[in-house]
């Protein structure tokens, strides 16, 4: 197990390296006159040139890249070119916010999606149609429309939740709940649809398995077989979808964070890419890629737990 994790981590590190190199190259190609951007319009050409030299922008790509990698390995991702805030500090404070959103959404999605999926698989007919309709709507309605709708109904009209802002979980749980509930709902709806239809499909598939009949022939009730055995077997594909959803949610959080004025990674991602703040963007790339790697390892371990065949001894 430990060897498996180590091996996957190593592969993840290589993956991180390749992905960050690619990203660096892309950003380098896309970068504009950053020194001018930083100093603003009133700076003189000399100041701009000096700033560029200070940031190492006059160095060739390979030198800058090697320099970046050298520091990154030691955990030093530099400081934002625009705010001088250390990249690590800028990201960690916001990462917690985004992760609390995304993890909350994933939990809600997994629970509700599974429940809906099982319901549809069992009842078929009307329930099936209901889940299908919800799926189609969740797929077709953009998340931001759902978000605005939720804000208007539950925050502005009913006053149950805060329309904007964010309270740290460590500060106050009710406060946290009053600020994250609507964003999580807005994010969940699309994801729930995906999970529900996946669970529905795999449950139906699994219910057709021979061993389901055999277990039932031993006197186990259909529900017992369903909740204990079928769900565990159907969990594998659903987990894979959940992993994809999790990564997708990191992107989806951007718009929701914007609408709810939540200080997560979203605003940083949009601003830093728009401004060409390479240290910050690279930090984001590494963090997201690392999350993807970790999530995939976790999913694989969970998958191994659900499916002994996939287990690595």
């Amino acid at each position: 197990m430990l060897r498996f994790i180590l091996r996957r981590l190593l592969a993840g590190v290589i993956l991180l390296f390749v992905a960050s190199s690619l990203a660096y190259l892309l950003l380098y190609l896309g970068a504009g006159d950053i020194a001018r951007q930083i100093l603003g319009v009133s700076a003189t050409q000399e100041q701009v040139a000096a700033k560029a030299a200070q940031l190492g922008l006059d160095q060739p790509l390979i030198v800058r890249y090697v320099d970046w990698v050298g520091h990154a390995i030691t955990g030093d991702f530099g400081a934002s070119w625009f705010t001088s805030q250390p990249v690590v500090a800028a990201i960690t404070s916001r990462l917690a916010v985004t992760l609390s959103l995304v993890i909350g959404t994933t939990v809600v999605t997994a629970l509700v999606g599974t429940a809906l999926g099982v319901w549809a698989a069992r009842k078929r007919g009307a329930a099936d149609r209901f889940v299908q309709i919800v799926s189609v709507l969740g797929f077709a309605i953009p998340g931001f429309l759902i978000a605005i709708f939720l804000v208007n109904v539950f925050a502005l009209n009913l006053g149950w939740f805060k329309p904007t802002g964010f309270v740290q979980l460590s500060t106050s749980f009710p406060g946290w709940l009053s600020t994250v509930t609507l964003p999580i709902l807005a994010l969940s709806i699309g994801a729930i649809a995906a999970i529900a239809s996946q669970v529905r499909g795999s449950v139906i598939d699994t219910m057709r398995q021979d061993w389901v009949r055999t277990l039932r022939s031993r006197g186990l009730s259909e529900n017992r077989v369903l909740y204990k055995h079928v769900l565990r077997n159907a969990g594998g594909p659903a987990l894979a979808v959940l992993a994809v959803q999790f990564v997708g949610l990191l992107g989806g959080a951007i718009i929701v964070e914007k609408i709810f004025a939540i200080p997560g990674l979203g605003p940083v991602a949009v601003d830093s890419t728009a401004r060409g703040d390479i240290p910050l963007v690279m930090g984001l790339v590494v963090v997201t890629a690392a999350i993807v790697v970790v999530v995939n390892i976790v999913i694989e371990i969970l998958h191994g737990f659900l499916n002994p065949k996939a287990r690595i001894s």
């Binding site: 925050a155 502005l156 329309p163 904007t164 914007k258």
Partner: peptide
């Protein structure tokens, strides 16, 4: 801090 006109409007309305 508000970056988005919609969230700002929501904050005002709320």
């Amino acid at each position: 801090y508000y970056a988005d006109p919609t969230s700002l409007l929501n904050a005002v309305q709320g």
